[in-house]
Design a binder for these strands. Sequence first.
RNA 1: GCGUCGGUGGUAGAGUGGUCAAUUACAACAGACUGUAAAUCUGUCGCCUUCGGGCUACGAAGGUUCGAAUCCUUCCCGACGCA
Length: 504
Amino acid sequence: MEFKIEKKLKNSLGRVGVLSTPHGDILTPAFVAVGTKATIKSLNPEQVRDAGTQVVLGNTYHLYLQPGDEIVHDAGGIGKFMNWRRSDGGIAPTMTDSGGFQVFSLGVAYGKDISKITKITDPSLLIPERFDDSDAPRLAKIGQDGVSFKSHLDGSIHYITPEKSIQIQHNLGADIIFAFDECTSPTEDLKYQGEALERTHRWAERSLAEHQKLLIQKQKHSQDLLLRNVDRSPASISDTKTEEYFLEGLSQSDGSRVSALPADRDSDPINNDSSVFTPALFGIVQGGREESLRKQSAKIISEINVDGKYFDGFGIGGSFAKEDMSTAVRWVNEILPEEKPRHLLGIGEPEDLFMGIENGVDLFDCVLPTRLGRNGTIYTKKGKIIITNAKFRNDFGPIEDDCGCYVCSAPEAFFSGSLSVSADTALPFGSSVCETPHKKTSGASRYSRAYIAHLFHGKEMLAGTLASIHNLHFIVNLVKKIRQSIIEDNFFEFKEEFLTGYLK
RNA sequence: GCGUCGGUGGUAGAGUGGUCAAUUACAACAGACUGUAAAUCUGUCGCCUUCGGGCUACGAAGGUUCGAAUCCUUCCCGACGCA
């Protein structure tokens, strides 16, 4: 994996870059769609891609339980399994989370009304949940060197260690994977945050060690495979579909990457590559809202290495109060090595995206666009609306007048003009444009607010789909526009203009 | 015409003498959601309220009772059966 910074935002940590993965380039900053169980809920991959999404994120815990990481491996990796493809037909970039978030969501937060973003701004007012009801039922318990999970599906017990998480993630076959960490609750006190941080650091080192070990094994395996294939006929080569995926888009011996894979790549498994498919491993910085812990974590995680091999990038995880987020991100990103990508885990409200990008974040993922969409909340430039509200029942206008998403654009535009090959659509992700290729409307949108409200009231499946398409488009393209604003030197003007309208 | 059963809040449907402004579900209305146990969850849901309470309510009108959605009488309405 290669990360190239193309432009920096003046007087801040912000930057624009290109992250090259074995399955294509990601223009950063970028928003990653969350597809926990190898599906972005309610959307098919074409809808996800047409919303402008470049990369999707699956989850180790969920895919390990169902269908099992071996199945995903045998299917050819998560991208192939879920048919996540670029517009040229090749498999598109993927990531997997390590299961570290489930330590929190199935642990202390289980059955409780605790979010990773607390509304309590004064830490001294927080009540540590751990001491409050340590006997409360939870599905994740932290053990000596890992976490035991009680499956929410069948109650079976599974012990996940850093090594196990990395093994699963190698099987899942994403381009970017994460170290196993402990996402702490914002209600934990400083003492616990410190203990958890030490644990996360130990786990980070073990994650990296396991990752290196598996990479060496895989390299050896692929060399054997390539040697064997020298004498093979084309027919027999096509039987090695699984290996083929894991060999796809490899680095060349001189370290440069083979970019933009051809559409028929699947039928051309060897393709002159001689090195192994190498997922990039990101270490995760924790430390809650505490400055000393955040800085300590950033330093340690960036310095951890195994035989001289460091993390390929970094995730910024954990919990904080909303208003502490910007300072926490800044503390961390001032310390992390500039030349490596940074991913702010699980954050994605519009104002957070501006904050993160300004403070040096390259990647975001968040369930909000799709979860809010399914639950009837829709993003607009004037703020979020709850589409089930009575006032929308007879509102026949579009969700947004000048939105280019499938839902808001004019029907004739979608069926005739914009889907034909154009300069914009020919590019994998429209690198030179902010909006995805749906034609803008002048009044007549494909679907009205009234219709979408009707679908929600009628509990129709299409409701969540249409709302998710719009929301995902909104967020993904907001990040693209922010990227463009940095390139065009008007980030701060754009931020001011957007947030003034959005936050009212 | 006679007989039987039944009429409860927007709907369905509990409740058969006090703990009933009335269980529950749905609908309605509002809200929440940040590395997805989530197409989920929460609150409100007769009228008024200084949030203490006040007022009107279980088809209608009378009655019994300290007290009635609940018992009695008549009437109205519905379903079914017999003429």
